[in-house]
């Protein structure tokens, strides 16, 4: 394991700040993304208060160009974060096998949580892409259109014949839990690596916040289904 003083390591040493910048950037992009996620969930949860508040917030975000700037910025952040975090994941089959075997053998909580983070990252990556595609295709966001989407029973409702499956509810519940899990424990890990606080206390605080956010998300999804059920047949799309 002695560091060989070959050409590559010598050159890398002269770029001695790369590892620091990359590590910092991973943590900072993570913090920004979890900040985005929690804010996003609070905004979505305004539907529980009233569809009118939800609509006004959405209009406001468009009017002040927060959505137009925020969405591309978030997409960029996600790409950066995936790229930086990938270097930490076990990517070779050999590494995956060692990771799984050690996690199973030690049965150590935080190690298992991290394995779950790697897996949930895959879900979040794919599902966020689908989510963004659908959202942007139906812009602007309004309570009625969101409700219709959440309550729709298939990717292409009536082409599947009599088959009705609450596709988007299932999709969003998985997305919500995967996103919150990945983000919540991601923030925990960032604070463990950089912070001063005892990680056991911190863990409980973050688990509490995560439960609240997941609760808000579920409440919002439920409200959307209720709104959709009360819309006139075919839905009035503003």
């Amino acid at each position: 394991m002695e560091l060989a003083k070959n050409l590559q390591t010598t050159i890398n040493r002269s770029y001695g700040k790369t590892d620091l910048y990359v590590d910092l950037a991973q943590s900072i992009s993570g913090v920004l993304l979890i900040g985005f996620l929690w804010m996003h969930m609070l905004f979505v949860a305004t539907i529980v208060v009233s569809p009118d508040l939800f609509n006004r917030l959405s209009i406001g975000l468009d009017e002040y160009y927060l959505a137009q700037v925020g969405i591309p910025a978030t997409i960029l952040l996600i790409i950066i974060h995936i790229f930086l975090a990938l270097r930490r994941a076990p990517v070779r089959l050999r590494d995956m096998r060692i990771t799984y075997r050690m996690a199973k053998m030690m049965n150590h909580f935080d190690t298992w949580i991290w394995v779950g983070q790697v897996v949930s990252a895959l879900f979040v990556g794919v599902m966020a892409s689908i989510h963004l595609w659908i959202i942007l295709g139906a812009w602007p966001l309004r309570a009625a259109t969101s409700a219709m989407r959440v309550a729709s029973t298939g990717p292409a409702d009536h082409t599947w014949g009599g088959f009705a499956f609450p596709f988007f509810i299932v999709f969003y519940v998985i997305f919500l839990i995967a996103g919150e899990y990945h983000g919540g424990f991601g923030l925990y890990r960032i604070l463990v690596k950089w912070g001063w606080w005892d990680r056991h206390t911190m863990g409980w605080v973050l688990k509490g916040i995560t439960v609240v956010i997941v609760g808000l998300g579920i409440a919002a999804l439920y409200t959307f289904t209720q709104i959709a059920a009360n819309l006139p047949a075919g839905g009035v799309i503003q």
Partner: peptide, 23 residues
């Protein structure tokens, strides 16, 4: 100190799994 440990093989390589801390 940075020269010794300020890299991915040193302090910035830690993922924060904390098995060390627990065990």
């Amino acid at each position: 100190y940075y020269e010794v440990i300020g890299n991915e093989d040193g302090t910035f390589g830690c993922v924060g799994l904390m098995a060390c801390d627990d065990l």
